[in-house]
């Protein structure tokens, strides 16, 4: 088995990373999963969270919100709606995406009158964001 695999992180606006890595920890919708070389081919959607990449020369982390990951035996491509390096994540950006999530939540709540489904999805999105913020030591005003 190969020691490393190809990892690509792309957002609609640019390619953020492309490298040979040892493992990638992906925040999947159904839970965290770690992909290593030889992982069975999987496609999973993402929840907002932190993507941890272990490369041969150290670890790097990215903040991703939504999108999906395509895992094959030889590589991982993550297509994130919005992605940025963890160092670049600031309180302002956090506030901004929190604001967006909150807006979606309140809109969905209004539109669907508390039916399960879309409202729950939006609520989950919001709580995922809060969890992510706390994890990073950024305050996420509820």
């Amino acid at each position: 088995m190969a020691d490393t695999m190809q990892f690509d992180l792309v957002s609609p606006e640019r390619r953020l990373a492309s490298a040979q890595v040892v493992s990638v920890q992906i925040p999947g919708t159904d839970g965290e999963l770690t992909a290593m070389p030889g992982h069975s081919a999987t496609i999973t959607t993402l929840r907002p969270g932190i993507l941890t990449v272990d490369g041969p020369d150290g670890q790097s982390q990215y903040v991703v919100t939504g999108g999906f990951a395509e895992i094959t035996t030889t590589g991982v491509s993550v297509l994130a709606e919005r992605a940025l390096a963890r160092e670049d994540m600031t309180q302002e950006i956090m506030d901004e995406i929190m604001e967006e999530a909150k807006n979606t939540y309140s809109k969905q709540k209004e539109a669907f009158d508390n039916q399960p489904g879309p409202v729950d999805d939006a609520a989950k999105l919001l709580s995922d964001m809060v969890a992510m913020g706390e994890n990073m030591g950024l305050s996420a005003k509820k």
């Binding site: 919708t29 999963l33 069975s40 081919a41 999987t42 496609i43 999973t44 959607t45 939504g66 999906f68």
Partner: peptide, 23 residues
């Protein structure tokens, strides 16, 4: 390659189609 889908294929498709429009 045959992919495993997580969650289901339908759920992923439902999630991705609106994104596809945006893309």
């Amino acid at each position: 390659v045959l992919f495993d889908y997580e969650p289901s294929e339908e759920a992923i498709l439902a999630d991705l189609l609106p994104r596809g429009v945006a893309t």
